[in-house]
Every structure is written in C-alpha cells, then in structure tokens.
Design a protein around this nucleic acid. Structure first.
Length: 455
RNA sequence: GUGAUUGUAGCUCAGCUGGUUAGAGCGCUGGAUUGUGAUUCCAGAGGUCGCCGGUUCGACCCCGGUCAGUCACCCCA
C-alpha cells in the first residue's frame, strides 16, 4: 500500500522540530517567568465536556471518537433509519478530541478545585484538533500554547497577559499588533444602538470589518434585520478610536461604561511598564468564541513594520476573559478566568517566511568520527566517549567497512562542521585528522586539542 | 459545509488537437578515486501518469465520479 497521513496533518523532520521547539521554548520561558505552572490534559475528552462550548459551528468541527466494541448495537434506531448523523452521534460516540485548551482547562480546574491554589495560573502546550477544511495556516492538528489564570477578577492579569504577548514576540524577533477590546463595550454598543437582541450578529459582522470593509459590514447588518438607524449608530461608534470618546457615547449603558472602565484600567497597568509592540484598543475586535465575557485579545503581525509588509496571515494569537466557563462545569465561586493562546503553527509559518530562525548549533551534531577499519573503529569508539563527556555532540559512523567517500558523503549530508579521521597512521602517532568541512582544511591534532578547539 | 484549481520518477517540473518505447534537472546507486565530502567525468537503477469507471481502433491528454494537495468563502489559531 501507499503510505499516507490524514488530511490536515503533517510530519515534521528534524529541522522543523528544532525550529518548532525554538518557538515553544521561548514561549515557555516567558510563561514560567510570569509564574505560570504547566499542566497537561488528555487528547480525548468526554464529548459532553466539549459540545456546546464553541457555538454551533464549533460543534460541527469537533472530531468524534467512535465507541469501542459493537457500537452499532447501541445506536439510536430512529436516527440510524433516518440517516440523521447529528442525532446518531450521542449513541455511538462518547468521546471527542479536544478543540482547544481552554475548555479542558476549565474542566480541570473544576475537577481539581480542592487541590489547587487560587488564583490558579497555568500554562499548557499541547496539540488540538479541528475538523476544518485545511488551507493556508490552517490544519486539522495543530499546537496551541495557552496561559490562563482562574480565580481572580483583577485586571492586572489582563495587563500581564498583554505583557506576555509583548515579551514572547520580542524574543521571537517578530513585530506584532496586540488588539484589545471588551465584550462589555460591544454589548454597550448594541444597547446604545437600541439593538441588544442583535448583540451576537452585530459582533460577528464587526469582526469582518477589516476583510469586507464598512460597506460590507453595513450590508451584513441589514441582512440580519437591523434598521437603518441602528446601522448608522453602529457605524458612528466604529469610527471611535479612543476610550474617552467612547465613554461619552455609552453614557446610558451601564455595561458599556463598565467595559470602558475595565479597558482604562488595563491600559493604566500597561503604562507602568515598557512594551515593545503596538498594544492598542480596537473597537472592531470581536472574536467568535462565545464564552468570552470581558476583555478580549487578538494578535496579528504588524505589517506596517519594515520587512513584514508582505505577511498575509490571520490572527496568530487570541484570548480573553471568561467569567462563567467554570460555572458550566458546576463551580459556584472563584471561577472567573482569563487567558491567551499562541498559534504556534502560524507563528512558525510567519517566521519561516521572514527567515527569523537562528542557526541552532547547540542541538545539532558538531563532530563526526570516521574510521577506516575495525581496529581504528574501536579506537574511535573510545575517543568518542571522551568527546561526548566534554559536552560536544558527536557520533561515530557505525560501519567502518563502508568506503571512505560514502562516510564523507554522510558527513556532508548531515551538515556536520567537523570530521575526525582515524586510521593506522593516526593511531600510531596519536594525532587525529581534524577536517573542517566548510573550508576543506585538515590538520593533525591530539584528541585533547580537538576537544579544546570544539568546546 | 460551499466554490475554484492542481495531481506525471524520491524532489521540482516538461510532455503538441488523442497516436508506437512518457522525458529533463536535482537526488539516489556504481565507477574514474580500496585514506577524503561539497566541484568534474562516465555508467545505471527508478513510473499502477492519484484512484475507479466511461468515450475511442487507440487515453498521461477528453468525460463522469472519487481521493489528496493548494487557494478562497463560512469559521478560526
């Protein structure tokens, strides 16, 4: 048979894994520096944990795992007869692959609420799965890197998360825009426009502003049944760039005012420290996941920065506050959480495009021993151990009977910077041939000298 | 879930309106060179033309379906 892998999934070769780890390591460093602790949760969750948390669209994108054994014997007869897939699912599948890390985390917090300190600050770097149609920057299996804090309403946490975005992307050498908004502001806008019942449609339309433009948004709002008057009000509010202006418009909406005040506080905290990226209020930021209740975040590549103009990539991170998510799992108090996520795959793609990955020599082979016969192979095997003990990444070509040019070719393919050649002459003199693969130069040195040079 | 587009050697691709034996570059194997890779020269291996079906005397080429990649939409990281 022909080998293949499921669509939307990928293999990663050594070079890619090293680069991916570079991203994960930078992210993890910052998470740890801010006091967050690691957890891991299973790839599979009970389906009931996942369904209903991501909206209707999200439910359709969940991977369901077929029950073990004779699952059809317990299948819903009617659903089966009517070919009604969505009605059939509960009777043949009780588990699904996680769709994100936030919902499993909320489940984790509630299950372990008596064992963990609050506020609980955790980070989690694991793959998630979505049954989406793959395209540019979108896969069915991809990694998310989440930081969340549960058990505190403090807006210092929102500010801290924005700082984390700032710091991670600075370490990665990527200039970004961190957009911040608040669901309460959006709710206030709906109130001010007299359309609180259209809150969700309004946010979804607004979310598309940078893609379809103001005219597109207006068309979409009209299509969703808003009056011309309401649409005009929404358009006016979308033109507001600063928080103080917004406060005046939302004066009659308590929730709207609250949202503005929260944002003011977040930016006040941020003003106490230095940041390196454009962190700004953006009234057009909406975000689709419907469990968000307060501040929301989204990160995009800053295309106004020199060298990054041509990057076309959607959001490379997002998050927000979810006050009620743990309540769904039965937690009565202390349950407000806030968190952000890094889209590692998209960050990878952007960094690849901009050539931001450094040569990471620490993780690759530094020295290769090549022996000409069994006797020198034994000699090299012994020398190898000393080299490794000195902290140099080294290996010995395992088969000395292979022709020398084969072995040299292997060295070339591995991209190893230095080769040590060992044969009769070298064993006799105790001076080994150290060859620099880049220049082709070769010199005779004692093993200790070689170690000294490569250290 | 909707639409567009592509699928030929390990990789990147060429292949005329449908006509015998499907090609190139790179890579791979062997040799020139049994103590030297990357450069040079010589030779060689490697193909169910994504898969299934149809049209035709004849299909890599045309038609239908299907699978996969890519891109856009919906949504999203």
């Amino acid at each position: 048979m022909r080998p293949s892998i499921p669509k939307g999934t990928r293999d990663f070769g050594p070079e890619e894994v090293l680069k991916r780890n570079f991203i994960f390591d930078r992210i993890r460093e910052v998470f740890v520096r801010y006091g967050y602790q690691p957890i891991e949760t299973p790839a599979m969750e009970d389906l009931k944990t996942l369904t209903g948390k991501y909206g209707e669209e999200g439910d359709q994108l969940l991977f369901k795992v077929l029950n073990n054994g004779d699952f059809l014997s317990k299948a819903d007869e009617d659903a089966l007869k009517n070919r009604d897939s969505s009605a059939l699912v509960p009777s043949i599948s009780k588990r699904g692959l996680r769709y994100d890390l936030t919902v499993p985390f909320a489940r984790f917090v509630v299950m372990h609420q008596n064992d963990i300190p609050f506020p609980f600050k955790r980070y989690q770097i694991q793959p998630v799965w979505r049954a989406d149609r793959p395209q540019k920057g979108r896969y069915q299996e991809f990694y998310q890197c989440d930081v969340d804090a549960v058990g505190s309403d403090s807006l210092a946490l929102e500010a801290e998360l924005a700082q984390i975005y700032d710091e991670v992307f600075t370490k990665l050498g990527l200039k970004v825009v961190v957009k911040i908004n608040n669901r309460k502001v959006l709710a206030g806008m709906a109130e001010a426009a007299g359309i609180p019942e259209h809150f969700l449609s309004m946010t979804m339309a607004i979310d598309k502003l940078d893609k379809i433009g103001m005219d597109g948004v207006k068309k979409e709002l009209a299509g969703r049944g808003l009056t011309e008057e309401a649409i005009e009000k929404v358009e006016q509010m979308l033109g507001i760039q600063d928080l103080s202006g917004l406060k005046g418009v939302l004066v009659d909406s308590d929730i709207g005012k609250q949202g503005v005040e929260e944002l003011e506080q977040v930016f006040d905290y941020l003003s106490l420290g230095d940041t390196h990226n454009d962190i700004r209020f953006d009234i057009t930021l909406a975000r689709g996941l419907n469990y968000y209740t307060g501040c929301i975040f989204e990160v995009a590549v800053d295309t106004t920065v020199e060298g990054q103009e041509k990057v076309k990539m959607g959001s490379i991170g997002g998050g927000g506050r979810y006050a009620d998510l743990t309540e769904v799992f039965g937690m009565k108090q202390n349950g407000s959480g806030v968190g952000i996520s890094f889209g590692a795959e998209r960050i990878y793609d952007v960094m690849e495009e901009l050539k931001l990955f450094p040569e990471d020599k620490a993780n690759t082979l530094q020295l290769l021993f090549i022996a000409f016969d069994d006797k020198s192979h034994r000699y090299a095997f012994k020398a190898l151990q000393q080299v490794r003990a000195a902290g140099i990444n080294a290996e010995l070509y395992p088969d000395p009977k292979k022709r020398l040019n084969k072995q040299m070719k292997y060295a070339d393919n591995r991209g190893v910077p230095y080769v040590v050649l060992v044969g009769d002459r070298e064993m006799e003199s105790g001076e080994l041939g150290l060859k620099n693969m880049a220049t082709g130069q070769q010199e005779s040195l004692r093993l200790e000298q070689i170690i000294e040079q490569l250290k």
